[in-house]
């Protein structure tokens, strides 16, 4: 549904590389996540694929149309929800929706079934100006407007940034339902925990893709044992772990440090624990854990920089 080949874009006459040589495919009916920190190039990629930006080199097809030669067809068959709320704040909810419907040559009634789940939640406020909606309602309106012409591909640029945990969960449920309607969805997010909700993900950093796979495959490709450790003195623990010769990597995750060890035998880890106790660490908790996307991301990132 989306094919990207060697796509490159830089700003300021080549000084700032936004994306470099991106190549990937998104299959029909997939929820495809672009996972990466701020500044990774996600928005640039989305703007190129929605024909708002021209690439420096490389090419891409969206819904079977070339982004440069057939941009008009693409504009008719994609929905785009930018990261920043960009509907008319001085028009009401209903006016915004019917405006975008008519722009695409359709009506609210015609595609009501598609947006019903989402729009019905904000319908009681349809006479309210879009600018006066709460963050979560704005997001639902923006999604309704992006869907009103029944697009084949939906681009969602950081839809959950700045949204509370409950609304985020709801939002992902909405995406699952849209997927079941046969809409291909490209979604970008800086939140690693949302990655597991996608069918496939691309980990993106500094404009390059580190890995593309299903979330399960990405985590199982971690390839080594991962341990979580915590004690009462977290700061000195980190210093002690990093200076230890058996510790390969140590990164903070919530209240734990995630460790990989050069020697993963039980003997080596109990020796590590003994030496930590000798250094005065009390109530140590140490256990093997399954790697998450974030662990993989950090590992891939540090491998890339070495």
């Amino acid at each position: 549904m989306v094919t990207v080949e060697n796509l490159t874009k830089s700003y300021s006459e080549g000084k700032v590389k936004a994306i470099t040589n991106l190549t990937f495919r998104v299959n029909e009916g997939e929820v495809f996540g672009m996972i990466g920190p701020d500044g990774a190039g996600k928005t640039t990629l989305f703007r190129i694929l929605t024909t708002l930006l021209l690439p420096d080199s490389g090419n891409a097809q969206v819904a079977g149309f070339d982004i440069q030669k057939q941009y008009k067809n693409i504009r008719e068959s994609v929905g785009y929800m930018p990261g920043k709320f960009s509907l008319y704040q001085d028009l009401t909810v209903e006016e915004n929706l019917s405006f975008f419907a008519t722009v695409f040559g359709t009506t609210i009634e015609q595609n009501y079934a598609l947006i019903k789940d989402i729009y019905s939640q904000i319908e009681p406020f349809r006479k309210r100006k879009a600018g006066q909606l709460s963050g979560g309602m704005k997001q639902k309106l923006a999604l309704s407007c992006a869907l009103i012409h029944r697009p084949k591909v939906l681009f969602l640029d950081e839809p959950t940034t700045g949204v509370d945990a409950v609304s985020r969960k709801e939002f992902w449920e909405m995406l699952r339902r849209l997927k079941s309607q046969g809409i291909t969805i490209l979604v970008s997010t800086p939140y690693m925990d949302e990655a597991s909700l996608c069918d496939r993900i691309a980990l993106i950093q500094n404009g390059s893709i580190l890995s593309i796979n299903t979330p399960q495959a990405v985590t199982s490709a971690f390839g080594e044992k991962l341990f979580g450790i915590k004690s009462e003195m977290m700061y000195t623990l980190q210093q002690d772990l990093r200076s230890s010769s058996v510790v390969k990597s140590c990164n903070a995750f919530g209240e734990f440090y995630h460790l990989t060890l050069k020697d993963t035998s039980d003997d080596a880890s109990s020796a590590l624990l003994r030496s930590l106790k000798e250094k005065g660490h009390q109530s140590l908790e140490f256990e093997e854990i399954t790697p998450k996307i974030e662990d993989c991301f950090i590992k891939l990132m540090s491998e890339g920089s070495n």
Binding site: T50, T51, L52, K72, R75, E76, V78, Y80, P82, K84, F85, S86, L87, Y88, Q89, F100, V103, F104, G105, C145
Partner: peptide, 13 residues
Amino acid sequence: EIGTIEQINVTPI
């Protein structure tokens, strides 16, 4: 400035 032009630009207008 508000960004609404982005939303218009991805439409067939």
